[in-house]
Design a protein around this nucleic acid. Structure first.
Lengths: 214, 214
DNA sequence: TAGATTGTTAATCGATTAACAATC
DNA sequence: TAGATTGTTAATCGATTAACAATC
């Protein structure tokens, strides 16, 4: 473990929950609320209040006994941990239905993820724009990624081409890959890979259906 | 904990990994391979071989020392655990870009999830078909769900309407919800909810980018 | 046989949960 | 004040990892 980062370590389950606190707190802020207790967050999200308190500890934000935490401070703390207070450019591979859905989703900008271009090898799609994002020929990926100094690549292609896409992204200097294909990709260990496969999530759902005899 | 199910208990992280073994093993089967060792599975997926061995134990499948496990037996065991050997009907709410992507994806049928209809309150979309799936008026959801005896509902609508969609699904007799909206929905405790929010996954990616100073 | 792999039990690690004093 | 909530330390729980005999 890297000693320099030891104080920044946050468990993965906590990171996942923090993303939910973010959305809840943004809504509360919009409604004009200023202070929130761990009890209320827990109640709204169906979590345990002790767990919420523990999660908040990682942000370093301190609250006031009897009152709770300042929502603005909590939001700033969460954005800091999740790195959502900086804008990061990303490119997307695969302008199929899933890729299109990702381009259409406007929520990414709010948390600092800016999809600047997409790539596809279907010539019918090349040159078109989806939600302001151009679809570019696949062959130009590596050069474009290098010129734009992109660090994040998003893979939204079928299983068969996921590995070759990952190789191209890495060839283009990408450091982090968000993989939506069901394929586990092989990369050098200095490349960060996060799998967003919803098949994993479906496996949990169908497993629970069986166990609960529904 | 339910004693009747105690022998069927499988940890969530194992369930997630099993879904990956499934895809890897299906590919190996296609290539004509009959036997596989935990070492090879681990190597292909970047997992630990001891962990793979442990995961396989949950399926009850026994292997042969020195040789490994029969791929066909492993696949049957995984399908059994994940409940992927039965066909389950599901309905989808929200025929936007994400809903469309889900309807276009043909991989669900292979694991027994059959999306039989989708619902949307946009009259321009109602009556159209996406990949053979009809888009039906929202008002007809509850009655349709009851008639078709649907147990699984998929939510692919914006955050604001996620809760009301969940209520409608439950009103229609649905027992399990696969939620793609960033909203944590409130349900009675006998309803199974699985969240497929990719924002959670993005949080992990951007967190790792910060910690690794990429 | 030798060596790789399985099967199983034990040790370790880390996240969750509990407990409780301090605080406003 | 009384009581709810924070902050922090300890206990528990469960998943991962290690160890090793059994096996072909």
């Amino acid at each position: 473990m890297n000693l320099e980062n030891i104080n920044n370590y946050v468990p993965d389950p906590t990171v996942r929950r923090l993303s939910h606190y973010k959305f809840l707190l943004e809504n509360m802020k919009k409604e004009g609320r200023l202070i929130v207790s761990s009890t209320l967050i827990a109640k709204e999200l169906g979590f345990d209040s002790i767990q919420v308190k523990k999660d908040i500890q990682y942000s370093g934000i301190v609250g006031q006994p009897k009152k709770g935490y300042k929502i603005s401070e909590l939001l700033a703390g969460i954005d800091e941990i999740l790195n959502w207070n900086k804008v990061e450019k990303a490119i997307l591979i695969g302008a199929g239905s899933l890729g299109t859905a990702l381009m259409q989703y406007n929520g990414f900008k709010e948390i600092g993820l800016n999809i600047v271009a997409s790539f596809d090898n279907d010539h019918k799609k090349v040159g078109k724009f989806v939600n302001g994002i151009e679809i570019i020929e696949m062959d130009r990926l590596e050069v474009a990624a290098k010129i734009m100094k992109i660090k994040i690549g998003i893979i939204a292609v079928p299983e068969e081409s996921a590995q070759s896409c990952a190789d191209k992204l890495i060839g283009g200097g990408i450091k982090a890959i968000w993989n939506f294909s069901p394929k586990i990709i092989q990369v050098k260990k200095d490349i960060i890979v996060e799998n967003a496969q919803f098949i994993q999530s479906l496996a949990l759902l169908t497993y629970k259906i069986r166990v609960n005899k529904i």
